[in-house]
C-alpha cells in the first residue's frame, strides 16, 4: 500500500496497463508453446506465424505418443519423481524431527551442513557425481537418478520441515512421551498427522524439483530405457529437421503435471517457498 490516492483515473489506467504488461510477459511464452503444438507442420513454419491455429490439429501429440519414445520417458519421469519424493520426505521428516526435538552434540554442524548442501549448486557437482554413481554401479538407471536427486531434495525438504515442525507446540509430543510412547511412535502418530499439510507441500516441492530436473538426467542417463522427459526432450530437439511441432507438444505434456500441482496448491506452495527461504 505504497501508493495512496488510488481513486485517481490515471492511477487506475496505470495499474491496468502494468498488470497487462506483467501478464503478457509471464504468459506469452507458455501460450506460444501451446499454440505451436496445435498447428500443422506447414503452419508452424508459415510466415507470418498465425496467432491461433488455422487448422487445429492434435497431430503433433499423436506423433509424440505414437512414434517417439516419449511415453517411456514420461513413465520414467513419473517413477523417478515419485521415488525421489517418497525418499526425500521420509528422510527429511526423520532428520527434521531430530533437529527440532532433540539436543545432541553436533546439532549445529548438522543444521549447517543441511543448509550448505541445499545451496550447493548441481552444476558444480555433475562430473564428480557421475564418477561416484558409476562407482556405485547405478549410473544410467532410474535408481541412480533418484539417488542423484536426493542431493538437492533431501536438504530442501529437511530444511522446510524444520520450519513446519517448529510451529508444532512441543507440549503435544511431550504429553505423548509421558504416556510412554517412544520417539518413533510420537513422530508417526502425533507429529506427522499434525504436520500433514506441511508434509504435502514439501512432497509437492520434491516432486516438482525431480520432475523438472535436467542436467543430471542429461548426463547420468545415456540409454533410452533410463531417460526422463527432460533429457528425452533435448534428444528430440537435436539433429532432426522440422521438429518444433513435436517438441512443443512434448513440452506441453511435460508442463501438465506440475501445472496441475501448482493450480491445486498454489497458495501453499508460494507460502512454503518463501517461508522455506527466509523464516
Amino acid at each position: 500500500m505504497i501508493v495512496g490516492r488510488r481513486s485517481r483515473p490515471l492511477y487506475r489506467v496505470g495499474l491496468v496497463l502494468a498488470i497487462a504488461v506483467l501478464l503478457i510477459w509471464s504468459l506469452a511464452p507458455i501460450y506460444w508453446i501451446l499454440v505451436t503444438s496445435l498447428k500443422t507442420e506447414k503452419e508452424i513454419y508459415a510466415y507470418p506465424p498465425t496467432a491461433w491455429p488455422e487448422t487445429f490439429t492434435l497431430m503433433q501429440y499423436g506423433i509424440v505418443f505414437g512414434r517417439t519414445r516419449f511415453p517411456l520417458f514420461l513413465r520414467n519421469s513419473m517413477m523417478v519423481a515419485i521415488g525421489t519424493t517418497i525418499a526425500a520426505v521420509v528422510i527429511g521428516t526423520l532428520a527434521a524431527y531430530a533437529i527440532t526435538r532433540m539436543r545432541f552434540v553436533g546439532r549445529a554442524i548438522v543444521a549447517r551442513a543441511i543448509v550448505a548442501a541445499y545451496l550447493l549448486p548441481p552444476a558444480l557437482l555433475f562430473i564428480p557425481l557421475f564418477l561416484v554413481l558409476q562407482q556405485f554401479g547405478v549410473i544410467d538407471s532410474l535408481t541412480g537418478l533418484v539417488l542423484a536427486y536426493l542431493t538437492f531434495t533431501v536438504p530442501f525438504c529437511t530444511w522446510m520441515l524444520i520450519g513446519y515442525l517448529r510451529t508444532v507446540p512441543t507440549d503435544l509430543d511431550e504429553a505423548a512421551r509421558i504416556d510412554g510412547a517412544n520417539r518413533m511412535q510420537v513422530l508417526i502418530h502425533v507429529l506427522v498427522p499434525v504436520a500433514a499439510p506441511g508434509l504435502v507441500v514439501v512432497a509437492l516441492f520434491a516432486f516438482t524439483q525431480a520432475w523438472n530436473e535436467f542436467l543430471y538426467a542429461l548426463i547420468f542417463t545415456y540409454s533410452e530405457a533410463a531417460r526422463t522427459i527432460t533429457s528425452g526432450l533435448v534428444g528430440m530437439m537435436m539433429g532432426d529437421v522440422f521438429i518444433w511441432g513435436q517438441v512443443m507438444a512434448a513440452c506441453a505434456i511435460a508442463i501438465a503435471p506440475v501445472l496441475v500441482i501448482y493450480l491445486a496448491a498454489q497458495k501453499y506452495l508460494v507460502e512454503g517457498l518463501t517461508a522455506g527461504s527466509v523464516k
Binding site: L27, I30, W32, I33, L233, V247, A254, I255, V258, Y262
Partner: peptide
C-alpha cells in the same frame, strides 16, 4: 497466480520455448 506461473514451468521447457 498467473504472474507466478513461469515458476511452475520446468526450466528446460522454458528455454525450449524461448529457443523456438
Amino acid at each position: 497466480a498467473l504472474a507466478f506461473l513461469p515458476w511452475a514451468v520446468p526450466g528446460l521447457v522454458a528455454v525450449l520455448g524461448w529457443r523456438w
